[in-house]
């Protein structure tokens, strides 16, 4: 693959800790190969900062294969940057032109307090799962895996919802900081499966309650979450969630 070197101006959010106000800092970076990933560019910059005796930029990352959901930069006004259906770690510098200015911020949401620089606290998402994002089956209780046939169509839809990586881009993209896409994906995964039926109604009510408690906003159907989701989770899951929730509430009241 042909590649070239880029010179870029980075404007990066620096914030010492959750109590600090934070500010943008500018960095000129040179010799950035178009074959590098976006995070490798940060590696290069951090190596330089360390050598200059400065504090490197803190950012979350782990697998660098687009699956763990740990990376989380808000790049030029978009979670995970310009490529559709791509996490920050899979974004490559081919996406940029020589001389570009790139603005990098952390996820911005009340429910995701900044820990340092570009690193935020997303444990609210774990607590939503704790409120009902599972099927209650203890180890050892299972019957044979082929005992219940599941139509391929349903299995595929369940899988499509289950591919959510829990990165929080949907929240960052949403002007209301709503976690509806995240939540709906988990609810839909189980709603399509026979195993998920027993707790179908309590699950959706408990998870929505927890989401509200965590301070995520409401969904106003702008569709930003779907547009920015690195795993292309469909907004139709939110429509399904609304239906699930309404039916469950009606049933609970009767």
């Amino acid at each position: 693959m042909e590649h070239k070197d880029l010179s870029l101006k980075l404007k990066v959010w620096r914030q010492k800790n959750s109590k600090d106000n934070g500010h943008f800092e500018s960095y000129d970076v040179k010799g950035i190969s178009t074959e590098m990933s976006f995070l490798e560019m940060f590696d290069v910059l951090n190596e330089r900062l360390i050598n200059e005796g400065q504090d490197p930029i803190a950012f979350d990352h782990d697998c660098r294969e687009g699956i763990c959901g740990m990376c989380s930069m808000y790049i030029n006004g978009r979670p995970h940057g310009p490529w559709h259906g791509t996490t920050t770690c899979q974004l490559h510098m081919r996406a940029f032109k020589d001389g570009d200015t790139i603005v990098v911020e952390p996820w911005r949401a009340g429910a995701f307090p900044v820990i340092k620089d570009l690193t935020v606290d997303r444990t609210a998402l774990d607590r939503i799962i704790q409120s009902g994002g599972y099927i209650s089956v203890n180890t050892g209780n299972a019957q044979d895996a082929n005992a219940i046939p599941i139509p391929k169509h349903n299995a595929d839809k369940s899988f499509a919802a289950a591919t959510c990586i829990g990165c929080g881009a949907c929240v960052a993209a949403c002007k209301n900081s709503s976690a509806m896409l995240f939540l709906s994906a988990k609810v839909a995964q189980f709603a399509y499966l026979p195993q998920g039926q027993a707790e179908r109604e309590t699950r959706v009510i408990d998870m929505v309650d927890q989401m509200d408690k965590e301070g995520f906003g409401s969904c106003t159907n702008t569709g930003a979450c779907e547009a920015e989701c690195p795993k292309e989770i469909s907004i139709s899951n939110i429509a399904a969630l609304n239906k699930e929730y309404t039916l469950a509430k009606l049933k609970a009241e009767n």
């Binding site: 299972a142 046939p149 299995a155 899988f159 189980f190």
Partner: peptide, 22 residues
């Protein structure tokens, strides 16, 4: 074999054939 049973019971969406089998 128990692992596959357990995972299916948890709602792990393994690939399936048109007849609904794994």
């Amino acid at each position: 074999a128990n692992i596959i049973d357990q995972c299916v019971a948890q709602g792990v969406p393994f690939a399936r054939e048109y007849g609904g089998m794994l």
